[in-house]
Simulated scan of single mutants.
Amino acid sequence: MSLLTEQIKASLADKSIPEKAAFFPRFFKAGPGEYGEGDKFLGVKVPEQRKIAKSVFKEISLSEISVLLHDEYHEVRLTAVYILVYWYQKLKTASEQKQLVDFYLSHLNFINNWDLVDSSCHHILGHYFIDKDRSLFYELAEKDHLWSQRVAMISTYHWIKRGFFEDALALAEKLLFHEHDLIHKAVGWMLREIGNMDFDVEMEFLRTHYQKMPRTALRYAIEKFDPELRKQILSGALD
């Protein structure tokens, strides 16, 4: 462990709030048999983690970030993810971006809760692959690995915001009947974002699937709909 990684961990420990350290294991489902089983928490607020990440991303190395991503504490890994995002956003060349993308993909096992995924994948993978072959995301969706599957879905957010819906819709259909509600939420969220950009595109998808799709995904997808339309959809009586 380098002096810098020790300093980062010490800075996070200094910002620890005991009440949050006690609450976070319940919030992030870190109990036995839950999706975050065994994760440990310092109890640090996100703004503090972002502040630390911004202060070090220009001087840290990938090997040091790897050390942080292997850490047992959730906030250390999340801070490492923020560092990666800030670093990636400053890169100028495709070769530099690819190096960081490859690093990110090689560490997916440590980007292992929904906040780590959601804070990073669309900023890094979504951005990098916007003008490239996207077969990787279908491979991730096929993996028997919850976080890889969520990465596949949430990465489409970058494309959705730029009016590219095809892969988001295809991945939503592929993951629609996944067994885990974290994927249902991811699918519903991305469908909602599509609707924010083009209501008709989302409605076309929903007309095909709304009667059978998981309730959580459906509720997320229609969260911002007109109350009467939302009622029709939830009752299975869409015209």
Rank of each mutant, 00 (worst) to 15 (best):
W87I: 04
I83T: 07
H145C: 11
F103A: 05
G33H: 05
F57C: 13
A186G: 04
A221C: 05
L136V: 10
W159G: 02
A94T: 14
A30F: 08
V46A: 06
E75A: 07
H158N: 11
S66M: 11
K224H: 07
P32I: 12
W189P: 00
E173S: 10
E96V: 11
F23L: 15
F27T: 01
L68C: 10
F41L: 02
F27N: 00
K90E: 15
A186K: 00
P25T: 01
I111P: 03
S66R: 12
E19R: 11
T156V: 10
Q232Y: 14
T156E: 13
H209I: 07
K9Y: 06
A221S: 09
R134A: 06
I222Q: 06
L140E: 01
H70F: 12
L182G: 04
K212Q: 11
E72A: 15
A53W: 03
G188S: 05
I124E: 00
N109I: 14
I65P: 03
L3T: 15
S2Y: 03
L3V: 13
T216Y: 00
L100I: 09
W114D: 05
P214R: 04
E193L: 15
K58S: 12
D198G: 04
Y88F: 15
F177A: 02
S11T: 09
L62T: 09
V201P: 00
T208R: 15
F165P: 02
V117N: 01
E96D: 15
S63C: 11
E179H: 12
Q149D: 06
H209D: 04
V81K: 03
I160V: 06
K15F: 05
V67A: 14
K231R: 14
N196H: 08
H178C: 08
A10D: 14
S55N: 14
L146E: 05
L238K: 07
K132S: 10
L125C: 03
T93V: 07
Y210W: 08
F199T: 14
G43K: 00
K161V: 04
V76Y: 01
R134Y: 00
F177K: 07
R219D: 03
I130R: 13
K212E: 14
T93H: 10
K20W: 12
H184S: 06
S55Y: 09
E139N: 09
D239A: 14
I154Y: 02
K51A: 13
K231I: 08
G188E: 02
S106I: 10
V44I: 03
F24K: 05
R162T: 12
A152Q: 11
G36N: 03
A170P: 05
Y220C: 04
W114C: 06
R192K: 13
D39L: 09
M190P: 01
F24D: 12
Y86I: 03
R192F: 08
Q99N: 14
F57W: 15
L42N: 02
I52H: 01
E64G: 06
S61C: 12
Q232F: 07
G126I: 06
E223H: 05
D39T: 10
Q97S: 10
L191R: 01
Y88C: 08
A152K: 08
L175D: 03
D200N: 15
Y82H: 14
D115L: 04
I222W: 04
E37S: 12
H123V: 11
L105I: 09
D115Q: 04
Y82L: 08
